[in-house]
Design a protein around this nucleic acid. Structure first.
Length: 472
RNA sequence: GGCGCCGUACCCAAGUGGCUAAGGGAGUGGAUUGCAAAUCCAUGAUUCAGCGGUUCGAGUCCGCUCGGCGCCUCCA
């Protein structure tokens, strides 16, 4: 089993991954809140967690990957001047909250597919697990972690000795109430609602029966309840955005460890943000870039994936059209080299790989094993490509192997030439141009080249003759 | 105000105190080409925001200054 080192936010150190069960890895990541399209910043973590999942598999683990879909309209746990996100989305688009959830869940998975992100083994919706959440609150109630105030059930954070350990909250002087209204019902500023029966909004659309009255769950509850249902009350990895450390994940830990009475998650991994020129992209800011926007500008989704893998998941990554262009150029170049290799060789079998190429693959794995260092892994890809001591067939085999983790679509590199070969008309035009060139009829040759370009194909002349590549 | 992260070439970006500071993109020069595109070759930081310190040795550790970002509100 290859060694995987992960940075564990709970303890803030790099730690070798040791699974709870030999050869298996249980892995939960915070999923989307489906009240709007995901913007490209939202898509960053899922790409990195996809790599994590693929690395775990590559290193020999049997992976169980669970992700939630937050389709409950959440208020905040503090006094909130805002509006329920789901209700707002529904009102603005003239749909019901349920339709909104369904629509944007679909849109989210469309994006996942285009980015070559594997669908988690379990995708669980909050609205389908209300009973599990209620059970968790009951257990907390039995163990004395809750109190009632103003119709809502609160978690008493004073009852948990190491509340806030991951976020180092004890070192912080939080300015509670600085930006929001303090909830007068709370005994401690950090307490949070487990179950609401007292909605701040008259038209609360999603409510369920509970032992405490009709209402809806607190936001943090769903992740604790669902992850534990599918992965057990103690599991390996919980992933999410670093913005969640102080509140969401801190409270998940509190309510889970409170209810279960033991340590809950062994490795917490958190991603940093995608940064625009002026700061992070946020849904609440109203304007943001979606994957569709990039596609409309002529980028491929996998160009964006390449861009993301070019930065480490724990570092802020600066987005600009310039850097995305760089990623696109790099990926195209890589695809071009793949296509060239495929013209001269077939991928050889894994058993026939020589020492040099094995060393390259080893270096690639090492990079990924060291806290998922995808930038270094990409550098290893380029080193391999440019290594003249390695036979084309070996390179191809290694590149296909690497792409099992990177998922940059390298396997489709040779597709264009096959497509051209299958298209009689294109082949004929290419042949005619070849004849025109042979007789130095440049006008005719250029006319055919323009014709092909107008059909979306770019002519590439080589010493071995001409071929076609897809243009923009 | 508190807490945390970051500042590496024109741009993006790796870098676990110790060989010549990865990789990609852009640029430039050359080869090739009917032209163009593609491709190939060559070319990049005596230096890692600045200053000081620790050390035999620091981009990597410590302190201060300047600059950027995040969290303490829902947020990936």
């Amino acid at each position: 089993m290859k060694s995987l080192i992960l940075y564990n936010s709970d303890g803030r150190e790099l730690r070798k991954f040791v699974p709870l069960k030999e050869g298996e890895a249980g892995f939960y990541c915070c999923g989307p809140t489906v009240y709007n399209y995901a913007h490209i910043g939202n898509l960053r973590p899922y790409t990195h967690w996809d790599v994590l999942r693929r690395v775990l598999k590559r290193f020999g683990y049997k992976v169980k990957h669970v992700m939630n879909v937050t389709d409950v309209g959440h208020l905040t746990d503090d006094g909130d001047d805002g509006e329920d996100k789901m209700i707002k989305g529904a009102r603005e688009r003239g749909m019901s909250v349920w339709e909104i959830a369904e629509f944007f869940t679909q849109a989210f998975f469309d994006d996942m597919k285009r980015l070559n992100i594997l669908v988690p083994d379990v995708v669980c919706r909050a609205t389908e697990h209300i009973d599990v959440m209620i059970d968790l609150v009951k257990r907390l109630e039995e163990r004395g972690f809750t109190y009632e105030g103003g119709g809502n059930i609160y978690f008493d954070t004073k009852k948990l000795a190491d509340y806030g350990r991951m976020a180092l909250l004890e070192r912080q002087e939080l300015r509670h109430g600085a930006r929001t209204q303090v909830d007068a019902q709370k005994r401690n500023p950090t307490d949070f609602v487990l179950w609401f029966t007292n909605s701040k909004f008259a038209n609360q659309a999603m409510i369920w029966d509970s032992p405490w009255g009709r209402g809806y769950p607190g936001w943090h509850l769903e992740c604790s309840a669902m992850s534990s249902k599918y992965l057990g009350e103690c599991f390996d990895i919980h992933a999410g955005g670093m913005d969640h450390i102080p509140v969401h994940h801190t409270n998940e830990i509190a309510q889970s460890e409170g209810a279960f009475g033991h340590k809950w998650v062994h490795y917490w991994v958190h991603n940093e943000f995608l940064i625009m020129k002026g700061g992070k992209m946020a849904k609440s800011k109203g304007s943001f870039i979606t994957l569709n926007d990039l596609l409309e500008e002529g980028y491929e989704a996998l160009d964006y994936r390449y861009f993301l893998l070019g930065g480490h998941y724990r570092s802020q990554l600066i987005f600009s059209s310039e850097s995305l262009n760089a990623a696109r150029s790099a990926r195209r170049s890589l695809m071009g080299r793949m296509a060239d290799l495929l013209r001269e060789a077939f991928p050889c079998s894994k058993d026939d790989l020589g020492l040099a190429v094995r060393a390259r693959l080893e270096a690639f794995d090492t990079a990924l094993g060291e806290d998922m260092n995808t930038p270094r892994a990409l550098a290893e890809v380029w080193s391999l490509v440019k290594d003249d001591s390695i036979e084309p067939g070996e390179k191809l085999a290694a590149l296909f192997s690497m792409d099992e983790v990177l998922a940059l679509g390298l396997a489709s590199a040779g597709r264009e030439s096959r497509q051209v070969a299958a298209d009689g008309e294109l082949s004929l035009l290419l042949e005619q141009r070849g004849k025109a060139r042979a007789s130095k009829d440049w006008a005719a040759a250029d006319r055919i080249r323009d014709e092909l370009l107008s059909r979306g194909w770019k002519v590439v002349d080589t010493s071995d003759g001409s071929r076609l590549e897809k243009s923009e």
